[in-house]
Design a protein around this nucleic acid. Structure first.
Lengths: 119, 119
DNA sequence: CTTGAATCTGACATCAGTGTCAGGTTCTAG
DNA sequence: CTAGAACCTGACACTGATGTCAGATTCAAG
C-alpha cells in the first residue's frame, strides 16, 4: 500500500506519516523508485500511534513503547525494561488524572448546556 | 490576594495568570501602584480555567463559557446562547472521544507494564 | 528613609506535531 | 510514449500556552 491510501484509510495526513517515519515510529519498504510501500499492518499501527499521541505521549515514549506492544500479527517483539516500565507507569497515572479532569470538565459543560436548555 | 499567593495556591505560574488576564479569563483589581489584587474566588476560578485548558478548550471558548458557569458565589451570570450551546456540545463530544481514546491507551500501557511484570 | 522582596510590562524563545509550498521524480493508465 | 496523478525531499510557518529574562517600579518591614 502506498502513502496516499494509508493516509486515506487512517485519516492521518501524508505529512504526518512521513513525520512518523523520521521519528522511528513507522517503517516502510521502498519501491525501486523510492516510493514508500506499507504492509497491511501499517493501518493498525498508525491508528495506535494516533491514539498514543492523543493520549499525550511524545514520540520518544511511543518509539520505546511500540516494540513492546502486542500487535495483530503476534506477540510483542520486546519486553519493557524496568526504566521504561517506570516511565509508562508515570504516563498511566498522568492519563488517569487527565481522565478525571476531562470528566469534571464534561460535567461543567453539561451544566451550562442544560441550563441553556431550560431557558 | 496578590499574584504570588494566587500562583502558590493554585499551582499555576504567575506568567500564566497574567496571560489569563490578557485573554479575558481572569479579572483583577489593581492597587494604586498597579499591582494586581484578587478576591478569594479567584482561586476557584483559576482551578476551573486550568481544568478546561487541560480538557482541550481554547481560551476563546473558555472566555465564552465562564460567565455561564455557576461559581461558588451564586448562580451563573449569563445563559449560553444557542450558538455557544452548539459549540459546547461539540466540545463535549470531543471530550467523550478523548476519554475513550485515553482509556484505550491506558489499556495499552497496562498490557505492556503487565507483560514486563510477568518476566 | 532604606532595603530587599514582590510585582510590573514587554519581548523573545520553546515545544512538537502538523500545514503548506516548491521543484523535481516516479508511477500507471491509455 | 505520454500525460496526469501520486510521490519524493527539504524548508519554512504556525499554533498557543508557557518559560524566561531585563529593566523599572511598588510594597512592606525595620
Amino acid at each position: 500500500m502506498r502513502i496516499g491510501e494509508l493516509a486515506r484509510r487512517t485519516g492521518v495526513s501524508e505529512r504526518s506519516l512521513r513525520y512518523y517515519e523520521t521519528q522511528g515510529l513507522l517503517a516502510s519498504e521502498r519501491t525501486p523508485g523510492g516510493h514508500r510501500a506499507y504492509p497491511e499492518a501499517a493501518v493498525d499501527r498508525v491508528v495506535r500511534i494516533q491514539e498514543l499521541y492523543a493520549a499525550g505521549l511524545h514520540s520518544t515514549k511511543i518509539r520505546q513503547l511500540l516494540p513492546c506492544m502486542r500487535d495483530q500479527d503476534g506477540g510483542p517483539s520486546a519486553i519493557a525494561t524496568p526504566r521504561l516500565v517506570a516511565d509508562l507507569t508515570a504516563e498511566r497515572d498522568r492519563i488517569d488524572r487527565t481522565i478525571a479532569d476531562l470528566v469534571r470538565s464534561r460535567e461543567t459543560l453539561d451544566e451550562v448546556i442544560d441550563a441553556a436548555g431550560d431557558a
